[in-house]
Structures are given as C-alpha cells and as structure tokens.
C-alpha cells in the first residue's frame, strides 16, 4: 500500500516538473498585469492584441509554413526512401541507414553551422534554406517510423496480389499501404513535433527577416517577452492537445471495431 502511494506521488512530481512551466505560461496568458509575478486579475486582452501583433503573426505564419511544408515533403521522400531501402541488398541498406542516423545523432549546432557554411557558398540564406534544413532532420524520423512497419508486412500477400493480376501500384495500395499507414502517420507527427520545436538549426540557416517563433523569441529576449506570446503558446498547446486526443480516440475506436 505504501509502495503504491509512493509511486503515485513520484509520478505526480514528475508530471508537475514536466507541466509546471506550461501551466505558468497558461496562467500568465490570462494575467491582467504586465508583471510576471503579480496576479492582476483575469483578462482575455492578450488574445486580442496577439491577433493584431504583426511580428507574432508573421513568425507564427512562417513557423506553420515551414513545419507543414517540411513535414509533408519529408513524409513523401522518407516513405519512398524507406520502401527503396527495404528493397536493397544488405550493404546498401547499411550505408543508407548509417547516413540516416547522422542528422539524428550529430549535435544540432554542428548540423546547423555546417549547412549554413554550405548554403552561403551558393545562395542567400532565407526561407528556402530553413526549409531544406528542416527537411534534412525530418526525413530520418519518417524513415525510422516507416521501416519497421514495412519489415513487418507480409511479402507473400503482396506477391499473391501480383499473381492474381494486380498492378504493383494497386497491390501496394491494397496490401502494403494499410500496414505501413500508422508508421507513415507517426513519422509525419514526429516530423511536425521536431520542426515546430527546433531552434538551433533554424537559427543558423535563417536569413535576415525570416523568423520562426523560436528565433523571434530569441532575438526579442532582451526586450522581455510580450504577454501576447503566452496567449499564442496557450492556444498552440490547446490545439495540439485537442488534435492528439482526437487522434488517440479515433484510433482506439478503430481498434475496438477491428476486435
């Protein structure tokens, strides 16, 4: 009994540790006082002024554009790559998987700087260089999520479909795709998470005038962060929470039906 309670308390402490800063930001987003410590009453005005703040809205739009474009393209390239890698001989597969691990394991600062050094030789830093950089660290997450699912698909079902006259594309869509779809989806989500949260690599590969939320915050740090940012982050968090809940609920419903 004691053990049960102490483990519950331990869980609660860890969750508090992980979610305390988030709770602080949410509370501050409703605080009618510019002070960060004093509670000045409840207000929704930061949510209104957030929508009117050009700097915030612009960097928010850039963040969304980069995150979505990079994640979607990474999902396509990564899924194709995973299918190709699976079809390779042992040696080719080992080389490609080794290369896939480089952006995952290398230090962010080194990845960012090395790409910046390459980019400035050929082009100006800007939106597209950030996009390329994000794609580079997003693709490995997609591959690593899709490949295990791909390895678990039954080879004979696919071949049977071919023998029965299905075209390779049709057989892929009917046999392989349903099996790897969860992997593709979680790879996409992983890519979104990583792109949304990245600072270091964006910081080094961005040009003047291009700002994501992270880099905007970093440059505005000395002026002190605006309460509008708390509002935006609260909104983002709630959207993420809702999305992930819907997805979890959706998939568990599907499992029940299948069972």
């Amino acid at each position: 009994m004691v053990k049960k309670y102490s483990s519950r308390i331990y869980l609660a402490i860890i969750f508090l540790f992980l979610y305390l800063p988030i709770m602080v930001l949410i509370v501050l987003s409703f605080n009618d006082s510019k002070s960060r410590v004093v509670w000045g009453g409840f207000t929704g005005k930061w949510y209104v002024s957030m929508l009117q703040n050009e700097t915030i809205m612009e960097s928010f739009a850039t963040t969304l554009q980069i995150t979505l474009t990079a994640s979607i393209l990474a999902t396509v390239i990564g899924t194709l790559a995973a299918i190709g890698i699976q079809a390779m001989r042992r040696k080719g597969r080992a080389i490609l998987l080794g290369a896939t691990n480089i952006p995952l394991l290398n230090a962010d600062i080194v990845t960012g700087i090395s790409m910046m050094l390459l980019f400035v030789r050929f082009t100006k830093l800007g939106f597209s260089t950030v996009l390329i950089a994000h794609l580079t660290f997003d693709i490995p997450y997609v591959i690593l999520n899709v490949l295990p699912k791909l390895n678990a698909t039954s080879k004979s079902a696919y071949e049977a479909a071919l023998d029965l006259g299905a075209s390779p594309l049709y057989a892929f869509y009917k046999i392989v795709w349903p099996d790897i779809r969860p992997g593709v989806f979680s790879g996409f989500l992983m890519a979104v998470t990583m792109s949304l949260d990245d600072f270091s690599i964006t910081y080094f590969t961005k040009g003047a005038g291009v700002n994501t939320l992270s880099t905007m915050l970093y440059t505005e740090l000395r002026k002190g962060i605006r309460p509008e940012m708390y509002a935006l982050s609260t909104l983002l968090f709630l959207i993420a929470l809702a999305l992930l809940f819907i997805m979890n609920y959706g998939s568990s419903r599907k499992n029940e039906i299948n069972n």
Partner: peptide, 12 residues
C-alpha cells in the same frame, strides 16, 4: 510538452 515552444518553456 514539446508542442509548446521550447524557447517559451525555458523562459517559463
């Protein structure tokens, strides 16, 4: 928590 911006969490 990673969906809440990293910079903001550290600022918090």
């Amino acid at each position: 928590p990673m969906w809440m911006n990293f910079m903001l969490r550290i600022l918090a």
